[in-house]
Amino acid sequence: MLSIKKLNVVVGDKKILNDFNIDIKEGEIHAIMGPNGTGKSTLSKVILGNKNYEVVSGDIKFDGKSILGLATDEIARLGVFVSFQNPISIEGVVNSEFLKTAINARRENAIGLFEFVKELEGKAKELDYPEELIHRGVNVGASGGERKKNEVLQMELLEPKFIILDELDSGLDIDSLKKVCEGINNYLKNHPKTGVLIITHYPRILEYIKPQFVHMMVCGKIVKTGGYDLAFEIEKKGYSDTSIIDSGENNE
């Protein structure tokens, strides 16, 4: 599904990703944990083709084909979805109109108004996403938690094949986190081939969306790969304890 090989990425003179490798197959859930500034969020933007980052070498393949050089919208329409850490607000662009345009960008025939409204209102209700926010500018006046719910609402409506959850738990209280994770788990139950990459500092979210693989990322590269338990070992010892890297299976 998603395969990244020896990816090197710079911004100006600064190297952000350093020989980065990862392989995520259909239906697998992976988590990347790492300290601030290690390039985790950059990774999601690079996968989406953000032009602010320069790929110096390496490749990103999705479903066997390189997506380097594709425009962001082309990558999105292939089925890649990123739930952003800090979803921005767009004043004047009505949320429902934005969502409808995004759905239609994936379809040959435009979605009917009745079908769209039914789908949108049903999914918003499941997420406890306030109805009035559907008719406002995208994320305008929305709290951090409401913005994250809007990300998951978009995900459910756009039905991606591969999902990146970038710091999903930041800005969410425990009840909202549970609700949002419940929505994602329902989606994965109904779309079992979906690949997932969770980017996080803390293992809390991994208690709700359980990964099969956990990667520890430091200085732009994965330094250790393990199972679910690795997340709690990292939490216990911290990112600076090199004994984690020295012990057991290593991605390199």
Binding site: A71, I90, Q154
Partner: peptide, 11 residues
């Protein structure tokens, strides 16, 4: 804003 919108598949 444009990046965000295009990340949802809008051209």
């Amino acid at each position: 804003k444009k990046f965000y919108m295009m990340s949802r598949g809008l051209t």
